[in-house]
Design a protein around this nucleic acid. Structure first.
Lengths: 234, 234
DNA sequence: TTGGATTTGTGCGTATGTATA
DNA sequence: CTATACATACGCACAAATCCA
């Protein structure tokens, strides 16, 4: 495990366990360097991780501060695995509507950035949080990259399977976000009315080598799903 | 201007002007270091900027690649000034409904993370893109931080004024994103029907020193407003 | 108000690790 | 297996913003 990740994890743990609960400022870089026995670069890389996660923020000339989380029960939109992360303490399960193999037509090949006719998996599942319908997922996987997906995997976590069993490294994802009125069929899945609002997220997910392995369209229950994002001033 | 920003800007310019249009891979770090006459750290900082902007991605052992932008006419959710950035080539203007001073009540003081009774500005404006209603903004500013906002500023760009005239540095923003049915009054502003969908973004905006200066609730036209976000696999 | 001390930001150099080709 | 190319890690110097006496 990389040193800066160890430091980031440990710092996060300590913050979560209230080590700095009386002051909202972290020790100085110099002190943390001594405490963790790492170089300045390594420490700064660790801090970067927690800044990106909106746990900390830095003020030049002043110090590193702990942010007060305002929003709860929100999916982090800048994270690939925001769903699992957010609801890890809640009961979540998936109901599979469709799980089938096929080949990429023009639309799918464009979205998966693969050749026409590439073998694919198509999965349609409904995700529940605390037994209430949360979202509907229409998902395509490139079978050349992910050779097998079974019912037991799709009911559990496909991403865990990809990282832990296939030992692939997920890199980043593009998300396209908009609002739409629900179709009749989707409103029934979500136990809402036709034409009720819904938040739609289309995501294209890349391995760390830049290859697209998944494209999903996820339609969210407008009363259940709330999102959080951190914006930077580039 | 910091070196790494100069390099990032120049690289971006060259990419935009098609310098690398025939290959989707950038020269190696070593070559770019020579080309721009900077150190490895500086070059990597520059690349980091463009990776965060989802212009580039890196593959260890392979190279730095240019991403093909898929989505157009989207507001970048990870950017504080996504609106202006995206529509800089379009006609945009704002209609001010309300612009008044007041003091922070309990709700506002919580959102602006300031004392009860702090002087504030409240601004309600409708923003138009190509003369079509795009969003409604309900915005509070801490007057201790932003001492004056006039009609002419609110009609133009408050953020430009803050950065260019007040010389303050905007740091980061939290965004809380959800979907709601439109109220009657908001539906009229947006020229939609009551109970039509809308994307709501509540943003808390911080200066680079960590002080909150603005809280806004922005209600978007569901047919006009589309968003883009980049997710990382932390 | 000023100026010095503190603290983070930027920049340079170098060596070694690790994934890819 | 080797070479290539990005990732991580160490150390140092100075700049810029903030803090405080």
């Amino acid at each position: 495990m990389m040193k800066y990740r160890v430091v980031a994890d440990q710092l996060l743990e300590e913050i979560a366990h209230g080590k700095y609960k009386n002051e909202n400022r972290l020790p100085t870089e110099e002190e943390l360097i001594t405490e963790y026995g790492v170089s300045r670069n390594t420490l700064r890389n660790a801090i970067d991780v927690l800044v990106d996660k909106s746990i900390l923020y830095r003020v030049q000339g002043s110090g590193i501060y702990i942010r007060k989380p305002i929003y709860q029960d929100t999916i982090t939109i800048n994270s690939i695995r925001g769903f699992k992360e957010e609801f890890k303490n809640k009961k979540i399960h998936s109901k599979i509507i469709t799980l089938e193999q096929g080949i990429a037509d023009e639309k799918i090949s464009k979205r998966l950035q693969c050749e026409l006719g590439t073998p694919i998996y198509f999965i349609n599942r409904i995700r529940y949080v605390e037994d209430k319908p949360f979202s509907i997922e229409y998902s395509y996987f490139n079978k050349d990259v992910i050779p097998y997906i079974g019912k037991e995997i799709a009911e559990d976590s496909i991403y865990n399977y990809i990282e832990n069993d296939l030992k692939l490294t997920i890199g980043f994802a593009d998300k396209y976000i908009f609002v739409e009125k629900l179709s009749k069929i989707n409103s029934e899945y979500l136990e809402l009315e036709e034409a009720d609002p819904s938040m739609v997220i289309e995501e294209t997910v890349f391995l760390s080598n830049g290859k697209v392995f998944n494209h999903s369209t996820v339609i969210h229950h407008y009363k259940q799903a709330k999102f959080f994002a951190l914006a930077k001033n580039w």
